[in-house]
Each structure stands twice: as C-alpha cells, then as structure tokens.
Design a protein around this nucleic acid. Sequence first.
DNA 1: CACTAATAGATGTTACTACATTAAATGTAT
DNA 2: ATACATTTAATGTAGTAACATCTATTAGTG
Lengths: 153, 153
Amino acid sequence: MSIETDIKQKKFRSPYQRLALNLVYTTNWLEYKQHEFFKEHDISAQQYNVLRILRGQQSNPIKVSDITERMLDKNSNTSRLVDKLLIKNLAKRTSCPNDRRAVDVVITEEGLKLLEELDPHVEEWENRFNIITPEEADHISALLDKLRESELE
Amino acid sequence: MSIETDIKQKKFRSPYQRLALNLVYTTNWLEYKQHEFFKEHDISAQQYNVLRILRGQQSNPIKVSDITERMLDKNSNTSRLVDKLLIKNLAKRTSCPNDRRAVDVVITEEGLKLLEELDPHVEEWENRFNIITPEEADHISALLDKLRESELE
DNA sequence: CACTAATAGATGTTACTACATTAAATGTAT
DNA sequence: ATACATTTAATGTAGTAACATCTATTAGTG
C-alpha cells in the first residue's frame, strides 16, 4: 500500500517530504514488526541489538561505552540495557583490570543459545525483504547514507 | 558516512540486513534532528504531526480517531497528544453533535500561527534532502512502499 | 606532587509510549 | 424494548527513554 493511502494524505509538498514521511512511517512499521517478534522471546529489540554486538566480539570482553558506539540508537541507556541482560543471565559483567572505571561485558552461554535460536527467524524476516532485488536494497542503502550527509550544519 | 562506519560493523549478512539496519539508523538520525528542531519551539514531533493534520482539515472539525488514522505512528496516544495541544492553546476540543462519544478537534488561531512560523524552517529542512535528486527520492519512496507489502503473514 | 579536567558508568527524575481497562454512547439482533 | 456487542475517547499502569547528576577513577598540567 502506498504511503499516500496509509496516512490518507493525497498530496505531498515535494518528493523529499514524501520520502521523509515514508522513512519514518516505514521504520515505525519495521520496528513494530520487530517488537512483535522479539517479545515472544521476552527480549526487546535494543537488548537483542546489544546481544548481537556481544556475540560479534567472539567472547572478547567489551566496554559499555564501546557497546554504545556500535548501537543503532546511540541515545539509549546501555548501562541499564546490560542490567536487563544480566538479570536474564544472558550476559556477564566483570570490572576491567586496566581501567577500573570501565566495565567489561561478555555474552553468556545462555545468551549465545538464545541468539542461535533466533538466528533462523531473523534471517527469515530479513529475507522477506527480497521482494525487492539485492541491487535495489543496496541502492536504497547508498541513498540513505547520502541523505545523512546533509548533516553539515 | 556509510552505515558500516557509523555502527562500526564491517560485514552484513545480506544487502537486506544492511538495508534494515540502515533504515532504522537513518530514521533515528532523522527523528533526532527533528526533535532538536521542534524542541526549540516547545513542541514535540508528534504534536506537530497532529497540528499539521488539523490544519489540513481547513478548520473542519476532525475526530480523535480520524487523527489517529492519519498519524505516522498509529500507536501513539492521540487523546493525550491533543491534551498537550489544548494546554498550549494550539487546539480546541468540542463534543461532536451527531455522535456524543466522539470529540471534535480544531486548530486555533495560535496553532495556525505557530505552523506558519515553522513552515519556512520545515521546508528548508526538507530541502536539505535535495542532495539526492527528486527522482531518487521517489524511487526510494516506491521501494519503501514495496517493502511494507511483505506484510502478508 | 597537588589540582583540575575528563572519562566511565550508575542512578534519579521526568516525560512519554505501549498496553489494558474503563465509561459512555451507539449499533445490532431478537 | 432489552440485551449484548462495538465504538470512541479517557485514564491507569508499567516499562522505557531522555536528560541531568553523581561517584569513582584516570589523565593532564603546573
């Protein structure tokens, strides 16, 4: 369904306005779908994101601040996200020997197991996108990268 | 800057994964920028969205449920958003004569004035997007529309 | 060294979102 | 008309995000 129909707006001021609204609308849709999926596994999308970052480290400990750097949403409160993972025993926290301010975080066996359980479903989800071609996907990605370059204030 | 650099991830499993992450990342960026802008005018992006919808009605009253239908984020609590607009005297609420369950909402003079004040800045913001061509913008929009069609569960 | 600035992460506060529930009005079926 | 379901909006609640502040530690400078 076109964005016009979805938000019942007949005309846009420009292709750029349509795009801006469409990006927000599509991402909301995407996040809602993800939320629906992750809640079945008692985890939030943000928490999943942290787990993925932890697994990416191959059991090398990673500092909280480094996790934040790799997050999609840099504003989120990583410290408390890690708390949630600790409670569920999906991650471990140990103090960092060479900088006692820092805290090292590692994924647990249980965390790895959860991710492995989710992997096929996540892949399946992503493959739903192949309604567009890989080239088209790359093209949008490139344009999105370009969009964020208007950053120069 | 490419999404790879921004979130320090070297490889993606597929163009689709890159796109999914890029969409979320770019929209976060977009929403943050919008938030920064709107907070200068003591209004949230959601509230602005409602005001725009109200103005679109040309002073015809509109029901709360119809506002929700036109919102980008359908889950948001329109009732409370309208509350905020009332407090700031940007909107009026009157009970609907032919359906006493419903509530009619209209934008006030003050609301219109605020929007007019914001208009040039919003346009300027959208024009920053012309770092890509209008055709490219339309192309992404079309692909986003297509993406959401994988909706068929 | 003492002193100040900077950094890392935890925590308090406020506001908002998501979700469920409620209350009133309306619609529908018998 | 009565009974029951549905719609509409408001509200209660729990969880989360945004933002500021706090504490501990480290870095930097005279």
